[in-house]
Nucleic acid binder design. Sequence first.
DNA 1: TCTGGGGTCCTAGGACCC
DNA 2: TCTGGGGTCCTAGGACCC
Length: 432
Amino acid sequence: MYALVDGNNFYVSCERVFRPSLNGLPVCVLSNNDGCAISRSNEAKALGITMGAPWFKIKHLAETDGLVALSANFALYGDLSDRMMSLAAGLGPHQEIYSIDESFIDLSDVAGNLTERSHKIRSRILQWVGIPCGIGIGSTKTLAKLANHVAKSAERKPGSYPEQLAQVCNLAVLTPSELDAVFAATPVNEVWGIGRQISKQLIDGGVKTVLDLVRLDPAMVKRRWSVVLERTVRELQGINCVELEHSPQPKQEIACTRSFGHPVTELADLSEAVTEFASRAAQKLRKQSSLAGQVLCFIRTSPFRREEQYSRSVTIPLRRPSADTAIIVEAALTGLAAIYRRGFKLAKAGVMLLDLQPDTVQQQELALEDDGSHDRSRLMSTLDDLNQRYGRGTILLASAGLAGDRRAWSMKQERRTPGYTTCLDDLAVAHA
DNA sequence: TCTGGGGTCCTAGGACCC
DNA sequence: TCTGGGGTCCTAGGACCC
Protein backbone atom coordinates (compact mmCIF):
# COMPACT_ATOMS: atom_id res chain seq x y z
CA MET A 1 0.00 0.00 0.00
CA TYR A 2 1.30 3.43 -0.96
CA ALA A 3 0.42 7.04 -0.28
CA LEU A 4 1.30 9.94 -2.54
CA VAL A 5 1.57 13.31 -0.79
CA ASP A 6 1.57 16.21 -3.25
CA GLY A 7 1.55 19.95 -2.59
CA ASN A 8 -1.25 21.81 -4.35
CA ASN A 9 -0.08 24.33 -6.98
CA PHE A 10 3.21 24.08 -5.13
CA TYR A 11 5.20 27.15 -6.20
CA VAL A 12 2.18 29.42 -5.89
CA SER A 13 1.41 27.95 -2.47
CA CYS A 14 5.02 28.67 -1.36
CA GLU A 15 4.65 32.31 -2.39
CA ARG A 16 1.36 32.57 -0.52
CA VAL A 17 2.95 31.38 2.72
CA PHE A 18 4.81 34.69 2.93
CA ARG A 19 2.23 36.84 1.17
CA PRO A 20 -1.18 35.75 2.44
CA SER A 21 -2.71 38.67 0.55
CA LEU A 22 -2.29 36.49 -2.56
CA ASN A 23 -4.90 34.06 -1.22
CA GLY A 24 -8.02 34.10 -3.35
CA LEU A 25 -6.28 35.94 -6.22
CA PRO A 26 -5.32 34.46 -9.56
CA VAL A 27 -1.54 33.92 -9.22
CA CYS A 28 1.03 32.24 -11.41
CA VAL A 29 4.76 31.60 -11.09
CA LEU A 30 6.83 32.12 -14.23
CA SER A 31 9.75 30.07 -15.55
CA ASN A 32 13.23 31.55 -16.04
CA ASN A 33 13.29 34.69 -18.19
CA ASP A 34 9.72 35.20 -17.02
CA GLY A 35 8.93 33.01 -20.03
CA CYS A 36 5.86 30.96 -19.23
CA ALA A 37 3.53 29.92 -16.41
CA ILE A 38 4.83 26.86 -14.54
CA SER A 39 2.54 26.98 -11.49
CA ARG A 40 -0.98 28.36 -11.28
CA SER A 41 -3.39 28.98 -8.44
CA ASN A 42 -6.88 27.52 -8.78
CA GLU A 43 -8.13 31.01 -9.62
CA ALA A 44 -5.54 31.29 -12.40
CA LYS A 45 -6.54 27.88 -13.75
CA ALA A 46 -10.14 29.06 -13.76
CA LEU A 47 -9.08 31.95 -16.01
CA GLY A 48 -8.04 29.34 -18.55
CA ILE A 49 -4.28 29.64 -18.05
CA THR A 50 -2.70 26.37 -19.09
CA MET A 51 0.55 24.81 -17.88
CA GLY A 52 3.40 26.36 -19.86
CA ALA A 53 1.35 29.23 -21.27
CA PRO A 54 3.74 31.95 -22.54
CA TRP A 55 3.59 35.05 -20.36
CA PHE A 56 3.27 37.46 -23.27
CA LYS A 57 0.06 35.70 -24.27
CA ILE A 58 -1.58 35.92 -20.84
CA LYS A 59 -0.14 39.26 -19.75
CA HIS A 60 -3.38 41.07 -20.54
CA LEU A 61 -5.08 39.12 -17.74
CA ALA A 62 -3.05 41.16 -15.26
CA GLU A 63 -5.03 44.25 -16.25
CA THR A 64 -8.42 42.67 -16.88
CA ASP A 65 -8.57 40.03 -14.14
CA GLY A 66 -5.97 40.99 -11.56
CA LEU A 67 -3.62 38.14 -12.46
CA VAL A 68 -0.44 38.32 -10.35
CA ALA A 69 2.71 36.87 -11.93
CA LEU A 70 5.91 36.15 -9.97
CA SER A 71 9.38 35.11 -11.11
CA ALA A 72 10.39 31.66 -9.90
CA ASN A 73 12.19 31.69 -6.53
CA PHE A 74 13.65 28.19 -6.42
CA ALA A 75 15.64 28.74 -3.23
CA LEU A 76 12.37 29.37 -1.40
CA TYR A 77 10.58 26.39 -2.97
CA GLY A 78 13.47 24.03 -2.17
CA ASP A 79 13.49 25.06 1.46
CA LEU A 80 9.72 24.71 1.96
CA SER A 81 9.88 21.40 0.12
CA ASP A 82 12.39 20.05 2.66
CA ARG A 83 10.07 21.00 5.51
CA MET A 84 7.02 19.48 3.84
CA MET A 85 8.89 16.26 3.05
CA SER A 86 10.04 15.71 6.62
CA LEU A 87 6.46 15.99 7.89
CA ALA A 88 5.10 13.76 5.11
CA ALA A 89 7.70 11.15 6.12
CA GLY A 90 5.75 10.73 9.37
CA LEU A 91 3.06 8.84 7.45
CA GLY A 92 5.05 5.61 7.15
CA PRO A 93 8.44 3.92 7.51
CA HIS A 94 9.80 4.56 3.99
CA GLN A 95 9.62 7.64 1.81
CA GLU A 96 10.62 8.21 -1.80
CA ILE A 97 10.95 11.88 -2.70
CA TYR A 98 9.74 11.86 -6.26
CA SER A 99 9.88 15.56 -7.11
CA ILE A 100 10.07 18.92 -5.39
CA ASP A 101 6.43 18.66 -4.30
CA GLU A 102 5.64 14.94 -4.26
CA SER A 103 6.66 11.95 -2.20
CA PHE A 104 5.53 8.35 -2.07
CA ILE A 105 5.21 6.71 1.34
CA ASP A 106 5.23 2.95 1.82
CA LEU A 107 2.28 2.10 4.08
CA SER A 108 2.63 -1.69 4.00
CA ASP A 109 3.22 -2.18 7.71
CA VAL A 110 1.28 0.78 9.00
CA ALA A 111 -1.57 -0.20 11.29
CA GLY A 112 -4.80 1.66 11.95
CA ASN A 113 -7.03 3.82 9.81
CA LEU A 114 -4.88 5.12 6.97
CA THR A 115 -7.42 7.71 5.87
CA GLU A 116 -7.62 9.31 9.32
CA ARG A 117 -3.88 9.17 9.70
CA SER A 118 -3.44 10.94 6.35
CA HIS A 119 -5.88 13.68 7.30
CA LYS A 120 -3.80 14.34 10.43
CA ILE A 121 -0.55 14.56 8.46
CA ARG A 122 -2.23 16.82 5.92
CA SER A 123 -3.41 19.20 8.65
CA ARG A 124 0.02 19.22 10.24
CA ILE A 125 1.72 20.17 6.96
CA LEU A 126 -0.83 22.92 6.41
CA GLN A 127 -0.39 24.29 9.92
CA TRP A 128 3.36 23.94 10.35
CA VAL A 129 4.57 24.74 6.83
CA GLY A 130 1.57 26.48 5.30
CA ILE A 131 1.31 24.29 2.20
CA PRO A 132 -2.04 22.63 1.32
CA CYS A 133 -1.59 19.02 0.13
CA GLY A 134 -3.60 16.25 -1.43
CA ILE A 135 -2.99 12.68 -0.29
CA GLY A 136 -3.86 9.64 -2.40
CA ILE A 137 -3.73 6.04 -1.20
CA GLY A 138 -3.71 2.92 -3.35
CA SER A 139 -2.24 -0.56 -3.54
CA THR A 140 0.28 0.46 -6.25
CA LYS A 141 2.15 3.67 -6.97
CA THR A 142 0.05 4.29 -10.09
CA LEU A 143 -3.16 3.89 -8.07
CA ALA A 144 -1.80 6.20 -5.35
CA LYS A 145 -1.10 8.81 -8.05
CA LEU A 146 -4.60 8.39 -9.39
CA ALA A 147 -6.07 8.67 -5.88
CA ASN A 148 -4.10 11.88 -5.42
CA HIS A 149 -5.62 13.28 -8.59
CA VAL A 150 -9.07 12.39 -7.26
CA ALA A 151 -8.32 14.00 -3.87
CA LYS A 152 -7.35 17.28 -5.54
CA SER A 153 -10.11 17.30 -8.16
CA ALA A 154 -12.82 16.52 -5.61
CA GLU A 155 -11.67 19.55 -3.64
CA ARG A 156 -11.20 21.94 -6.56
CA LYS A 157 -14.18 20.95 -8.70
CA PRO A 158 -17.10 19.99 -6.48
CA GLY A 159 -19.26 17.36 -8.15
CA SER A 160 -16.43 15.78 -10.13
CA TYR A 161 -16.09 13.03 -7.50
CA PRO A 162 -17.86 12.17 -4.22
CA GLU A 163 -17.25 14.93 -1.67
CA GLN A 164 -15.71 12.65 0.96
CA LEU A 165 -12.79 11.86 -1.39
CA ALA A 166 -11.58 15.47 -1.25
CA GLN A 167 -8.13 16.18 0.23
CA VAL A 168 -7.50 12.54 1.16
CA CYS A 169 -8.63 9.75 -1.17
CA ASN A 170 -8.11 6.12 -0.16
CA LEU A 171 -9.02 3.92 -3.12
CA ALA A 172 -8.29 0.77 -1.11
CA VAL A 173 -11.37 1.14 1.06
CA LEU A 174 -13.87 1.69 -1.76
CA THR A 175 -16.29 -1.06 -2.77
CA PRO A 176 -15.78 -2.50 -6.28
CA SER A 177 -18.69 -0.49 -7.63
CA GLU A 178 -17.51 2.75 -6.01
CA LEU A 179 -14.06 2.14 -7.49
CA ASP A 180 -15.57 1.56 -10.94
CA ALA A 181 -17.44 4.83 -10.64
CA VAL A 182 -14.20 6.69 -9.83
CA PHE A 183 -12.46 4.98 -12.77
CA ALA A 184 -15.34 5.82 -15.09
CA ALA A 185 -15.24 9.48 -14.06
CA THR A 186 -11.50 9.80 -14.78
CA PRO A 187 -10.23 10.47 -18.31
CA VAL A 188 -7.43 8.18 -19.43
CA ASN A 189 -4.95 11.03 -19.90
CA GLU A 190 -4.89 11.64 -16.13
CA VAL A 191 -3.09 8.35 -15.54
CA TRP A 192 0.60 8.51 -14.55
CA GLY A 193 2.64 7.52 -17.59
CA ILE A 194 0.00 8.31 -20.20
CA GLY A 195 0.87 11.50 -22.02
CA ARG A 196 -0.42 13.30 -25.07
CA GLN A 197 0.61 10.79 -27.76
CA ILE A 198 -0.53 7.62 -26.04
CA SER A 199 -3.81 9.07 -24.78
CA LYS A 200 -4.70 10.18 -28.30
CA GLN A 201 -4.06 6.65 -29.59
CA LEU A 202 -6.10 5.18 -26.74
CA ILE A 203 -9.01 7.53 -27.29
CA ASP A 204 -8.96 6.84 -31.03
CA GLY A 205 -9.21 3.16 -30.09
CA GLY A 206 -12.26 3.81 -27.91
CA VAL A 207 -10.41 3.73 -24.59
CA LYS A 208 -11.58 6.96 -23.02
CA THR A 209 -11.70 6.44 -19.27
CA VAL A 210 -9.58 4.66 -16.69
CA LEU A 211 -12.35 2.08 -16.47
CA ASP A 212 -11.92 1.29 -20.19
CA LEU A 213 -8.16 1.04 -19.71
CA VAL A 214 -8.18 -1.16 -16.63
CA ARG A 215 -10.36 -3.71 -18.44
CA LEU A 216 -7.88 -4.21 -21.29
CA ASP A 217 -5.80 -7.37 -21.55
CA PRO A 218 -2.19 -6.49 -20.58
CA ALA A 219 -0.74 -8.90 -23.15
CA MET A 220 -2.68 -7.17 -25.92
CA VAL A 221 -1.56 -3.79 -24.61
CA LYS A 222 2.07 -4.93 -24.77
CA ARG A 223 1.67 -6.17 -28.35
CA ARG A 224 -0.17 -3.12 -29.60
CA TRP A 225 1.67 -0.45 -27.57
CA SER A 226 4.62 -1.19 -25.31
CA VAL A 227 5.84 -2.79 -22.11
CA VAL A 228 5.58 0.63 -20.51
CA LEU A 229 1.83 0.87 -21.05
CA GLU A 230 1.43 -2.79 -20.13
CA ARG A 231 2.97 -2.05 -16.73
CA THR A 232 0.64 0.90 -16.27
CA VAL A 233 -2.40 -1.28 -16.96
CA ARG A 234 -1.20 -3.96 -14.51
CA GLU A 235 -0.55 -1.31 -11.85
CA LEU A 236 -4.11 -0.02 -12.30
CA GLN A 237 -5.30 -3.61 -11.86
CA GLY A 238 -3.51 -3.68 -8.50
CA ILE A 239 -0.37 -5.61 -9.48
CA ASN A 240 2.83 -3.89 -8.31
CA CYS A 241 5.27 -3.29 -11.15
CA VAL A 242 7.05 -0.16 -9.89
CA GLU A 243 8.95 -0.47 -6.62
CA LEU A 244 9.51 2.29 -4.10
CA GLU A 245 13.05 3.73 -4.37
CA HIS A 246 14.32 3.52 -0.80
CA SER A 247 17.38 5.68 -1.38
CA PRO A 248 17.93 8.31 -4.03
CA GLN A 249 19.92 6.94 -6.96
CA PRO A 250 22.83 9.00 -8.27
CA LYS A 251 21.99 10.83 -11.49
CA GLN A 252 23.06 9.20 -14.72
CA GLU A 253 23.47 12.56 -16.39
CA ILE A 254 23.73 16.11 -15.13
CA ALA A 255 22.71 19.14 -17.15
CA CYS A 256 22.89 22.89 -16.87
CA THR A 257 21.10 24.69 -19.70
CA ARG A 258 19.59 28.16 -20.03
CA SER A 259 17.64 30.29 -22.42
CA PHE A 260 19.20 33.73 -22.71
CA GLY A 261 17.48 36.95 -21.69
CA HIS A 262 18.43 38.36 -25.12
CA PRO A 263 19.64 36.70 -28.34
CA VAL A 264 23.41 36.13 -28.31
CA THR A 265 25.61 36.19 -31.40
CA GLU A 266 29.19 36.59 -30.18
CA LEU A 267 31.49 33.71 -29.32
CA ALA A 268 32.92 35.70 -26.40
CA ASP A 269 29.50 35.97 -24.73
CA LEU A 270 28.69 32.34 -25.43
CA SER A 271 32.01 31.31 -23.90
CA GLU A 272 31.13 33.11 -20.68
CA ALA A 273 27.77 31.41 -20.55
CA VAL A 274 29.18 27.96 -21.32
CA THR A 275 31.90 28.46 -18.70
CA GLU A 276 29.26 29.15 -16.09
CA PHE A 277 27.03 26.25 -17.14
CA ALA A 278 29.96 23.82 -17.12
CA SER A 279 31.11 25.10 -13.70
CA ARG A 280 27.63 24.65 -12.22
CA ALA A 281 27.31 21.19 -13.73
CA ALA A 282 30.72 20.21 -12.33
CA GLN A 283 29.65 21.39 -8.91
CA LYS A 284 26.50 19.24 -9.04
CA LEU A 285 28.68 16.35 -10.17
CA ARG A 286 30.98 16.67 -7.15
CA LYS A 287 27.99 16.99 -4.85
CA GLN A 288 26.88 13.48 -5.79
CA SER A 289 30.49 12.19 -5.68
CA SER A 290 30.64 11.28 -9.35
CA LEU A 291 33.03 11.67 -12.27
CA ALA A 292 32.00 12.41 -15.85
CA GLY A 293 33.40 10.55 -18.85
CA GLN A 294 32.03 12.90 -21.51
CA VAL A 295 30.96 16.52 -21.78
CA LEU A 296 28.24 17.61 -24.18
CA CYS A 297 27.83 21.22 -25.29
CA PHE A 298 24.95 22.56 -27.38
CA ILE A 299 23.73 25.88 -28.78
CA ARG A 300 20.54 26.67 -30.67
CA THR A 301 18.42 29.45 -32.07
CA SER A 302 14.83 29.96 -30.95
CA PRO A 303 12.45 27.47 -32.58
CA PHE A 304 9.68 30.03 -32.07
CA ARG A 305 11.22 32.67 -34.31
CA ARG A 306 10.75 32.67 -38.05
CA GLU A 307 14.38 32.88 -39.06
CA GLU A 308 17.05 30.48 -40.15
CA GLN A 309 17.48 27.85 -37.46
CA TYR A 310 20.78 26.57 -36.15
CA SER A 311 21.08 23.79 -33.62
CA ARG A 312 24.26 21.82 -32.96
CA SER A 313 25.64 19.70 -30.19
CA VAL A 314 28.96 17.97 -29.74
CA THR A 315 30.19 15.41 -27.23
CA ILE A 316 33.77 15.66 -26.01
CA PRO A 317 35.21 12.54 -24.36
CA LEU A 318 37.55 13.27 -21.45
CA ARG A 319 40.96 11.65 -21.43
CA ARG A 320 39.92 10.12 -18.14
CA PRO A 321 36.81 10.62 -16.01
CA SER A 322 36.94 13.85 -14.02
CA ALA A 323 35.01 16.21 -11.76
CA ASP A 324 37.51 19.04 -12.10
CA THR A 325 35.87 22.33 -13.08
CA ALA A 326 38.84 23.44 -15.18
CA ILE A 327 38.92 20.20 -17.18
CA ILE A 328 35.17 20.15 -17.73
CA VAL A 329 35.05 23.83 -18.72
CA GLU A 330 37.95 23.33 -21.13
CA ALA A 331 36.16 20.43 -22.81
CA ALA A 332 32.92 22.42 -23.05
CA LEU A 333 34.70 25.43 -24.57
CA THR A 334 36.51 23.20 -27.07
CA GLY A 335 33.13 21.83 -28.08
CA LEU A 336 31.61 25.29 -28.30
CA ALA A 337 34.37 26.53 -30.61
CA ALA A 338 33.75 23.54 -32.87
CA ILE A 339 30.00 24.13 -33.28
CA TYR A 340 29.88 27.94 -33.20
CA ARG A 341 28.91 29.69 -36.43
CA ARG A 342 28.81 33.44 -36.85
CA GLY A 343 25.57 35.10 -37.85
CA PHE A 344 22.91 33.29 -35.83
CA LYS A 345 20.83 34.78 -33.05
CA LEU A 346 21.27 32.10 -30.44
CA ALA A 347 18.57 31.69 -27.83
CA LYS A 348 19.86 28.87 -25.67
CA ALA A 349 22.96 26.94 -24.73
CA GLY A 350 23.78 24.15 -22.34
CA VAL A 351 26.31 21.72 -20.97
CA MET A 352 25.57 18.12 -20.05
CA LEU A 353 27.80 15.67 -18.23
CA LEU A 354 27.46 12.08 -19.43
CA ASP A 355 28.92 8.67 -18.68
CA LEU A 356 28.85 9.31 -14.95
CA GLN A 357 30.52 6.97 -12.50
CA PRO A 358 31.18 7.00 -8.74
CA ASP A 359 34.42 8.77 -7.83
CA THR A 360 35.42 5.82 -5.69
CA VAL A 361 36.14 3.53 -8.63
CA GLN A 362 38.28 5.98 -10.55
CA GLN A 363 40.61 4.14 -12.84
CA GLN A 364 44.09 5.34 -12.09
CA GLU A 365 46.49 6.06 -14.85
CA LEU A 366 50.01 4.80 -14.42
CA ALA A 367 51.62 7.89 -12.93
CA LEU A 368 55.40 7.98 -13.09
CA GLU A 369 55.38 11.07 -10.96
CA ASP A 370 52.83 12.91 -8.84
CA ASP A 371 50.37 14.45 -11.28
CA GLY A 372 48.88 16.83 -8.74
CA SER A 373 45.41 15.25 -8.88
CA HIS A 374 45.19 15.14 -5.10
CA ASP A 375 45.83 18.88 -4.86
CA ARG A 376 43.25 19.47 -7.60
CA SER A 377 40.54 17.65 -5.73
CA ARG A 378 41.33 19.62 -2.55
CA LEU A 379 41.12 22.79 -4.62
CA MET A 380 37.68 21.76 -5.88
CA SER A 381 36.40 21.09 -2.33
CA THR A 382 37.67 24.48 -1.23
CA LEU A 383 35.96 26.10 -4.22
CA ASP A 384 32.67 24.40 -3.34
CA ASP A 385 32.99 25.34 0.33
CA LEU A 386 33.60 29.00 -0.45
CA ASN A 387 30.73 29.21 -2.92
CA GLN A 388 28.47 27.46 -0.45
CA ARG A 389 29.43 29.76 2.39
CA TYR A 390 29.64 33.12 0.65
CA GLY A 391 27.18 32.56 -2.16
CA ARG A 392 27.18 31.23 -5.68
CA GLY A 393 29.71 32.96 -7.93
CA THR A 394 32.07 34.03 -5.12
CA ILE A 395 34.90 32.14 -6.81
CA LEU A 396 34.68 31.37 -10.51
CA LEU A 397 36.86 30.82 -13.53
CA ALA A 398 38.07 33.96 -15.26
CA SER A 399 36.46 32.81 -18.52
CA ALA A 400 33.06 33.15 -16.83
CA GLY A 401 33.48 36.91 -17.19
CA LEU A 402 31.71 39.42 -15.00
CA ALA A 403 29.23 38.13 -12.52
CA GLY A 404 25.79 39.66 -12.27
CA ASP A 405 23.35 41.18 -14.68
CA ARG A 406 25.79 43.07 -16.85
CA ARG A 407 26.35 40.06 -19.04
CA ALA A 408 24.82 39.99 -22.49
CA TRP A 409 23.08 36.70 -21.84
CA SER A 410 21.74 37.11 -18.29
CA MET A 411 18.21 35.97 -17.81
CA LYS A 412 15.30 38.21 -17.04
CA GLN A 413 13.68 37.98 -13.62
CA GLU A 414 11.65 41.07 -13.01
CA ARG A 415 9.16 39.75 -10.47
CA ARG A 416 11.35 37.88 -8.03
CA THR A 417 10.14 37.60 -4.44
CA PRO A 418 12.59 37.73 -1.48
CA GLY A 419 14.50 34.67 -0.21
CA TYR A 420 12.32 34.66 2.91
CA THR A 421 13.90 31.58 4.47
CA THR A 422 17.28 31.39 2.74
CA CYS A 423 18.74 34.90 2.90
CA LEU A 424 19.28 36.79 6.16
CA ASP A 425 18.72 40.18 4.55
CA ASP A 426 15.33 39.00 3.30
CA LEU A 427 13.93 37.88 6.65
CA ALA A 428 10.40 39.08 7.22
CA VAL A 429 10.13 41.82 9.85
CA ALA A 430 7.25 41.78 12.31
CA HIS A 431 5.97 45.22 13.27
CA ALA A 432 4.63 45.73 16.75
C1' DT B 1 9.26 42.10 -28.44
C1' DC B 2 8.24 38.27 -25.46
C1' DT B 3 7.70 30.59 -25.38
C1' DG B 4 11.77 26.78 -18.88
C1' DG B 5 14.86 23.34 -17.04
C1' DG B 6 16.18 18.81 -15.74
C1' DG B 7 15.57 14.26 -15.78
C1' DT B 8 14.29 8.74 -16.97
C1' DC B 9 13.22 4.70 -19.72
C1' DC B 10 12.52 2.15 -23.98
C1' DT B 11 13.17 0.93 -28.84
C1' DA B 12 14.93 0.64 -33.44
C1' DG B 13 18.65 0.33 -36.19
C1' DG B 14 23.53 0.22 -37.29
C1' DA B 15 28.19 -1.57 -36.38
C1' DC B 16 30.50 -5.26 -35.24
C1' DC B 17 31.56 -10.09 -33.82
C1' DC B 18 31.84 -15.25 -34.55
C1' DT C 1 19.45 -14.79 -60.06
C1' DC C 2 21.42 -15.90 -56.07
C1' DT C 3 23.67 -13.78 -50.47
C1' DG C 4 22.99 -17.37 -42.78
C1' DG C 5 22.06 -17.06 -38.07
C1' DG C 6 22.63 -15.26 -33.83
C1' DG C 7 24.39 -12.26 -30.61
C1' DT C 8 26.11 -7.69 -28.16
C1' DC C 9 26.88 -2.91 -27.80
C1' DC C 10 26.03 1.76 -28.83
C1' DT C 11 23.38 5.78 -30.23
C1' DA C 12 19.61 8.70 -31.59
C1' DG C 13 15.19 9.74 -30.95
C1' DG C 14 10.66 9.41 -28.92
C1' DA C 15 7.74 9.31 -25.07
C1' DC C 16 7.03 10.31 -20.57
C1' DC C 17 7.56 12.77 -15.85
C1' DC C 18 7.53 17.19 -12.76
